[in-house]
Write a protein that binds this DNA or RNA. Structure first.
Lengths: 107, 107
DNA sequence: TTGACGTATCAACTTATATTGATGTATTTT
DNA sequence: AAAATACATCAATATAAGTTGATACGTCAA
């Protein structure tokens, strides 16, 4: 885990950062059922368009969502593989963390 | 997932927030091998004591670490069950996110 | 019981994130 | 071509998070 490239660990950090905000989590939750455009999200979440654009950009940079333009609409959807990346990152902690007896500071 | 209590989703958000910071991730990484006190972490990470106390508090509030006092030392260790909670939260996205065909805005 | 040590906390400051309202840019409709 | 729509971006502001140095608190050793 320590030898993982900076690039991918930056992406992991970006992912966790993206997941630490209420509105962004609400966006992701809505995207679980279907692809949505920004105006759909504005309605559902009663948030302004520019606010949503901001948070969607954060989610996109973390690669938790994808976007696809269709005419004047921009459709956002979950990018599930990146969720798996984060999940596996956490799983590493379980795998390689032995329960080791206390080592005293005053040895 | 939407019906999860506010309390636990706050904890999940706190967990992801805690994981989005370099120094905190370094702390967690060190704790993977063994329990450590603050002075150990100061040395290993070349960071000031008050800085580490700050970040350890963030980690503790997110329940990603536990602490245990022994004399004048405070030993920190990973709280693996909370890692599992976060992992499972992410896993939910995989489980219940069907690939549904695009619904157009102009239907 | 005094002094040193390990840690937590605090106040002041710096830096990073988020919000708001306005403007810009495609795209479509008329 | 002009007006309307959907969205992104920007500058200004507000809020939150992190850093720093100082101080306070409990514990231990002398």
């Amino acid at each position: 885990m320590r030898q993982v490239s900076t690039l991918s660990s930056d992406l992991v950090a970006a992912g966790f950062h993206a997941l630490s905000e209420t509105l962004r989590v609400q966006i992701l939750d809505l995207l679980r059922t279907r692809e949505l455009c920004v105006c759909d999200l504005c309605e559902e979440l009663a948030a302004t368009q520019s606010k949503l654009s901001f948070h969607l950009k954060v989610l996109k940079e973390a690669e938790l969502v994808r976007s696809r333009q269709e005419g004047r609409w921009m459709y956002y959807s979950l990018n599930l593989p990146q969720f798996v990346v984060l999940e596996q990152y956490l799983a590493e902690y379980r795998r390689f963390s032995p329960i080791i007896p206390t080592r005293s500071c005053d040895d």
